[in-house]
Computed example of a mutant assay.
Amino acid sequence: MSAFSLDKFEITVGRMRAFVTSVDGNVRGHPPAEGAGEHPRIPGSGWRSEWNDMLPTDMADVNELLGPGCVAGGDPNEGGAPTWRTTPSENDKKPANCASWFLLFAFCIWDGGRLPTEAEFQAAALGGSEQRTNAWADSVLGGNALAYENGEKLVAAFLSPEGAGPGAFGMYTVGTPMRDVDPTTHMADDGDAHIAQVGVHPAGNGRWGHADLNGNLYELVLDESRPVDVTTGLPAGDVCNDCANVDWPKLTETDPAIVPFTVDDGADPVVVADIASWSKYYVGGARIIHGGSWSHAGSITNDQSHQNVVRFKYPVMRTYEAVGARCARDL
C-alpha cells in the first residue's frame, strides 16, 4: 500500500448531521461529482451517478432512513439501537449507524476524503507488520483471552464474563451489563445504551492511535466482497499493490456470487429471521465490513479464521444498527 491517512474515529452522528444539514437533507440534489472519492491509484473506484438515487432528498427522509427506516434495528422498543436523533444531543458523539454504504461514501467525499480499501482498514487494525491479534498490542492482555472484565477498558462489545463457560450469557462493556427487556413484549428496549461514544476506550486504540477498530460498530469499506479461500480465510487474489475490488454490479443487477447468510455462518439468528427477503438487498452487490461490533460476541479479533464475523460480505442495500464507517484520506 502507498501512504494514506485514516481517520482516528468512526463517523459520528454529529459529523453526519453537519453533512446532511448543509444541504437541508437533500443529498440527492447535491450528490458527489462523477468519479469523486476515487482512490488515486485505483481507476473506477470513485462515485457513480447511478448511485444518486440511493441518497435522501430532505430531512424527513434522513430522519426516516437513519431512524425507524433502518432495515435491521430501527425500533428501540423492539431491540433496535439507532444512534441518530432528529435534534443535536449527546448522541452526536456516538458513531452513526443505520447509514447506507452510499450515504457513508457520499459523506466521506463531502468531508474531503473517501472510503478506505479493505487493505487500508486491515493494515490499521493489524498494526501493519506487527500483525496484532487485536487492534491493541498483544501484550495488553498478557496472553489471556478477552473477556468482560478486561474487555471493558478496551472495546465496546458484547463479551462473556471472565471464566464463563460455554453457553454463558454475554455482558456489554458499555451501559448496563445486560440489556433492559420489556416484561410484556420480552423485547430489549434500551436502544443504543451499549454503543459507546467514539474514543472512550483509548487503551484499545490501534498502533497508530485509531480508536474502536475492533469494536463499537462494524465498518464498511470500499471493496466489493470476493470469494474467500477456506484454507487461509483470506480473500482470493489477495496479493496486489494499491488495489481493491471495485467491479461493482449495477444497482439493477444481482451479483450471482452472493449467497445470503445463514445462522451457521455466524449471523445473529434474530437478524436472519427475514432471510427470505435478503436477496433483494444484494441487488448491486455486497461490500465488505470489518472489525467487531457492540452487538456480537466473539468478533473482537483480527484473526482471519473468524472470517464470518470479522470480515464478511454485507448486502449493499441493507442498513444495520451495528454498521458504520470511517474515512480515509490521500497523502
Results as ranks from 00 to 15, higher is better:
residue 6 L to E: 04
residue 8 K to N: 03
residue 11 I to E: 06
residue 12 T to E: 09
residue 17 R to E: 08
residue 17 R to H: 09
residue 20 V to Q: 14
residue 21 T to R: 08
residue 23 V to D: 13
residue 25 G to Q: 02
residue 40 P to R: 05
residue 46 G to A: 10
residue 57 T to V: 15
residue 84 W to T: 00
residue 84 W to F: 03
residue 88 P to V: 07
residue 99 A to P: 02
residue 99 A to R: 03
residue 102 F to A: 04
residue 106 A to H: 03
residue 108 C to Q: 10
residue 113 G to E: 01
residue 121 F to N: 03
residue 126 L to E: 08
residue 129 S to D: 15
residue 131 Q to G: 01
residue 133 T to M: 02
residue 133 T to A: 06
residue 141 L to S: 11
residue 143 G to H: 04
residue 143 G to R: 05
residue 149 E to P: 08
residue 150 N to I: 11
residue 150 N to F: 08
residue 150 N to L: 07
residue 161 P to D: 11
residue 162 E to F: 11
residue 163 G to W: 12
residue 175 G to K: 07
residue 179 R to C: 08
residue 179 R to Y: 07
residue 182 D to C: 09
residue 187 M to F: 09
residue 195 I to N: 03
residue 197 Q to W: 01
residue 198 V to C: 06
residue 201 H to L: 14
residue 212 D to I: 01
residue 225 S to R: 11
residue 229 D to I: 08
residue 232 T to R: 06
residue 232 T to N: 05
residue 235 P to R: 12
residue 237 G to V: 05
residue 239 V to M: 11
residue 246 V to Y: 11
residue 270 V to S: 15
residue 272 V to W: 09
residue 273 A to M: 14
residue 277 S to W: 11
residue 284 G to L: 07
residue 293 S to C: 12
residue 297 A to L: 04
residue 301 T to D: 13
residue 301 T to N: 12
residue 303 D to T: 01
residue 305 S to P: 00
residue 306 H to S: 11
residue 308 N to H: 14
residue 309 V to F: 04
residue 316 V to T: 14
residue 318 R to L: 14
residue 318 R to D: 04
residue 321 E to H: 13
residue 327 C to Y: 13
residue 328 A to D: 14
residue 330 D to Y: 00
